[in-house]
Structures are given as C-alpha cells and as structure tokens.
Write a protein that binds this DNA or RNA. Structure first.
Lengths: 219, 219
DNA sequence: ACAAAAGTGTTTCATATACACCCATGT
DNA sequence: ACATGGGTGTATATGAAACACTTTTGT
C-alpha cells in the first residue's frame, strides 16, 4: 500500500469510552478534562490514539487506564464516527466503546480518580464536549439501553450482593421507565443469572429485602 | 496531535463491503480479485483506503463503485476489525459494511461486472480470501440475518413486483430455516411494507401467485 | 385423477402486562 | 395505627408457532 499518497496520508484511529454508573438513582458518565491544545480545558470522553502495535480493544483498555486510572472489563464496541472533518486538525476516525461500573467500585477507585482529570457527570448535566463527543455519548447511551439485560453488562453494574428493588431502580434510571415490581422480579429471575443468598439487607424504615448474587456457574 | 510519534505514524482506515444477493435460492456474495501486491490474484472483499476528505460512508460508496461498478443504496455499517497485525504491511483498521441487491439489478449490471475483476460466489463456495476477510464475511452474514426484516434491507433485496412464495424462499435461503407458508405471509403482511397489486404471476405447473409491491408512502 | 404449489383461518402456546393483597419496619 | 416499601400469585392480552383443507395448473 502506498503510504505517500496524500489522499490518505496522516490518518489516525481514536478509541473512546463512554463509561456509565448509577449513583443514588442518577445515571452518570465519566468525562476527562483535556489538558492540551486543541480545545485545552474542555471536557471530553476518555480515549486517544491507537498505537500501531496493539489490538483495538487493548488500545481502548490502555487509553482508559491512562486517562482515568480505571480498568473496566466487558467494554463493548458500539459505533464508528468517521465524518471527514470531525477532528479539525487531522483525519481521525473514532471507534466508540461503552462500559458500566458499579457504584461500589467507583467509590473504591475514588482516590485514583481525584489525581487524574476525570469526573463523573449526571447524563442530564453534561458540559459542552470536545469534537463530536456529545453525539458519541448519545449513541453509547442508546447502545447501553439495548444491551442492559445481557449478562456481562448486568454483572458489571452491580457489586457482589444486591436486592431486587435496588437493581430495579438502576434499570429504571437508565431506561427512563417504570417497572411493575412483580413483573420485574419475574423477568430478572427468569434470566437465570442471579440466585438467592438467603440473607437480607436492612434499610431504615423499610421491610428488609432479600439479597441476591450472580450465579458463579453461568451455564 | 502529534503526527510524528512513531507509535501512531502511518495508520490507515479501510472500508469493506459484503454485498449479498440471492440467485435462484443461492445466497451469493460479491468478491473481487486483487490485482496488485501483496496477495496479488487473491479474492477479497471490495473496498480500500478511505480518503482524508470524505466521510466514512461516502468512502465506502466510492470504493464499491471503483472496484465493482455498483452503486448500492442502504449500505449498513456492521463491524470494526482492528487486530494489530491483520494487514501485515501497515496498521490498517477495517470498517465493514454490508448491503443487498436484487437479482434483477444484478443482471442489469452484469456487463459492468464483467469488465471489472468482480464475481459472485455462493456463500457455500467462497475461495480463500485475503487478510481476515473470511472473518469479516462471516460477521457480515450474521448482521444481515439480524436485519433482514427491516424495511431498507427488504426493499433493496427485491425488484418492484414479487410474490410471497418468492420472497419466502429468499428468506429461507439467507436464514437457513423453513417457514410455515401461512405464518410467513402473516408476518410479512403485518409489517405494513407491501401491498397487493391485484396482478398474478404465472409459472409453469403451478397455481398463479399474487403479485405484491412495496408501498410507496411508507409511514 | 393426480401431483405440486398457492391461498386461507383457527387453535395453541409462550411471553409480557396488569393488577390486589399481605408483611416487616420505624414513627 | 399508620405510612412506606418489600414480597407473592393470578388473570389477561399479545405475539409466535402449529396445523388442515381447498384451489389452480400441467401431465
């Protein structure tokens, strides 16, 4: 292949992650503040240029770690953004990923996060984003909604033990809908992903709720 | 962005199309014979390098036209292939598309096709393909199956008039399943995409079949 | 009359939705 | 005792799959 042809000289590939969590009923996304030109100081999705010697998925993991300090399993590819002039300085194509992380892990990583330029934003209060990242976020949220009942996303979203009303609230936050308590329980149990721990969780002023966990042997 | 950093110098973006048709019950894919090194003479998917000044989708349309002479509407993006060493001479990421074309149009374009290096192959008799194109084809076929009942794919797959048994056979070929005649008819009509023409098609030895067409005002 | 393929309608099942009552807790 | 939220079972609607008989044509 000709690398000198100016028609395709100087192209680059970016990987971008939309990482979501649910914090007390609020869906949040992880953004980082740019610390170099162009658009210095603007918020953007964590990500960056793919290296020549790494697979696409590995590049995403590396960029996410470098920019935010987080290691998030089960990232999922969800889109390609390839308008000619989306990045005005160079011809970049962005491959977009999304992933989720439980609030439990978010808190555990909080110290790491503070030392980087990353912050969680409610998806209803997203600041102006660099390049076309607003469009990318919107698309990632759609893809998250589509995949939310699949096991890898589900298991990433919760810590070891959880109650059904708890995860129902998370689902309702993400999907923006309300579920009937009984039907939600039925649906979740029919997925065969979770099992009773025979423990209960107590919250003040409420009847204790059963604790569930993900089944180890899945299939 | 630094363009001199050797970590990401010399990357490129490829677009690739898996174009399918159904010819007398056989699902076929359009392949082109490479006419330059590396892998000169091998069969591959039509596609090539994206130009710097064109949108991704436009690049795909252009490459398909250049390599095969075909203009195919409703190409759909379906995957990204980004292993580090998938193209051994350079770091290329491939964005894969799929599309379908009716047998009627295929015949109309036959003369164009003959002058290019393109040929239709049954998906059960695909020759060894360049790079990772076999994997890309496999993935594209999956995506085709998933999207086969959506209106844009469906309308691309048939000419103006068609009978229900006819399109049932096409579906059965692509999906590799059998449908009950009555249930298939019910499903297809319930999509609200087609309407009766009040004409019939005659084939020897068979009862004449009703001809349908796509509804113009869709929605 | 028979074989081959086209046309039609009803029953059955599975899945999703709607819905009402009792229970445990803190005030 | 009451307000709040958790736990359970049944009835209904909706969509998918199963299924049998009649019609048209060529031989």
């Amino acid at each position: 292949m000709e690398t000198k042809n100016p028609k395709y000289r100087g192209q680059g590939i970016h990987v971008m992650a939309s990482i979501f969590t649910v914090d007390h009923g609020v869906v949040k996304i992880l953004l980082v503040k740019r610390n170099m030109e162009p658009l210095d100081g603007m918020w953007s999705l964590p990500g960056g240029a793919l290296y020549n010697d790494e697979d696409l998925d590995d590049g995403m993991d590396r960029e996410l770690l470098e920019k935010t300090g987080l290691i998030i399993p089960n990232l999922r590819q969800c889109g390609v953004f390839g308008k000619a002039h989306r990045a005005f300085c160079m011809r970049m194509v962005a491959i977009s990923y999304f992933g989720v992380i439980s609030q439990f892990k978010v808190e555990h990583f909080n110290s790491t996060l503070k030392s980087s330029n990353a912050r969680w934003f409610s998806i209803h209060q997203i600041p102006p984003l660099a390049y076309d990242h607003e469009e990318i976020v919107k698309d990632a949220l759609e893809k998250l909604k589509e995949g939310i009942f699949e096991s890898d996303i589900l298991t990433s979203l919760f810590s070891e033990k959880f109650t059904l009303p708890e995860i129902q609230r998370v689902y309702e936050s993400i999907l923006g809908t309300k579920y009937d308590r009984r039907n939600f329980r039925k649906k979740m149990l029919s997925l065969d992903l979770i099992e009773d721990t025979f423990e209960t969780a107590r919250f003040e002023g409420r009847k204790p709720a059963k604790l569930y966990r993900f089944r180890k042997e899945n299939k």
